[in-house]
Design a protein around this nucleic acid. Structure first.
Length: 273
DNA sequence: ACTATTTCCTGGATGC
DNA sequence: TGCATCCAGGAAATAG
């Protein structure tokens, strides 16, 4: 379940491997495939495009592309959302094509960039350069005043607000739970009712957790593997996520699990108020 | 304008 | 061992 740190790790790995390469041709699996843009448009955009860079925006991976059309250059973007189980693999053409492969781009270097996604929650799309700009603030860049304004007048649970990509982009279930634990805030607390000082703690916790996770290459839970095929290690640092019934690491009270907005939410009933 | 709920999808875990 | 059922969850769609 790739969230911001996993997507960051993957985007960095991809940048190292495919920046500067050229896409020779593209194959897209037959419908229904996880395409957000028409297949023809995706193929036309990727075909013969030079990969100028790969970066992360929220939970999206953005490939910056440049193409030469006759005399003029056109810039575009190829955008990949990994959903739950999506993977982007850079491999040799002879390596076995795994089940659930939905797209393959052949590169001038001889390698292939493949998109694999068993659960099909991932999405592929293209946009003109600069046009892709998901709403929501980057949690690692937002300042405190803007962070405060996200929750003003919002009656929903703070956990739901953190998962709302239109507010903050990139935080998912794991990092929402971990941040709330570190800030000592219960996930069900109404967002608008949380005091300023506590929100300051929350923003600090979010940034801290995300940075630590990026440094460790993300969390790896079941499906997630980075662009090199290596697992991340942040799951070893999870303090509440996936630890229902186990003792809180600071007070030994059993960690509770409740469902909020249809998602498992883990917290310590003693440390989080 | 918000908010809550449902839906998509498959593999792995669990239960009988 | 085999089969059915449940569960995970991001984000879009739907309902209120």
């Amino acid at each position: 379940m790739p969230e911001l740190p996993e997507v960051e790790t993957i985007a960095q790995g991809l940048a190292r491997r495919v920046r500067g390469d050229l896409i020779h041709s593209v194959w897209l699996g037959r419908k229904p495939e996880p395409l957000k843009s028409p297949a023809r448009q995706i193929a036309a955009t990727l075909d013969h495009a030079h990969i100028a860079g790969v970066r992360r925006m929220g939970k999206h991976i953005v490939f910056d592309l440049e193409r030469k059309n006759g005399g003029k250059n056109t810039a575009a973007q190829f955008i990949v959302h990994l959903g739950m189980t999506g993977r982007l693999q850079v491999c040799e053409p002879q390596s076995e094509i795994s089940k659930h492969t939905h797209a393959i781009a052949k590169l001038a270097s001889g390698r292939e960039l493949r998109f694999i996604d068993p659960r099909r929650f991932g999405r592929l799309s293209v946009a003109r350069a600069g046009n892709f700009d998901p709403v929501g603030m980057e949690p690692l860049e937002i300042d405190f005043d803007r962070f405060l304004s996200l929750f003003r007048g919002r009656k929903t649970a703070i956990k739901s607000a953190l998962l709302n990509q239109k507010l903050l982009r990139g935080v998912g279930n794991i990092y929402a739970d971990e941040s709330l634990f570190r800030a000592g805030i219960r996930p069900r607390r109404r967002a608008s009712a949380i005091r300023r000082e506590q929100l300051a703690n929350l923003l600090a916790a979010i940034k801290e957790v995300l940075k630590e996770a990026i440094a460790l290459g993300g969390s790896s839970i079941s499906d997630y593997v980075d662009a090199q095929g290596e697992a991340g290690f942040f799951q070893l640092q999870h303090r509440v996520y996936g630890r229902e019934g186990e003792p809180c690491l600071s007070c030994k009270t059993p960690v509770k699990r409740v469902v909020i907005a249809g998602r498992s939410s883990h917290y310590c009933p003693r440390c989080q108020k």
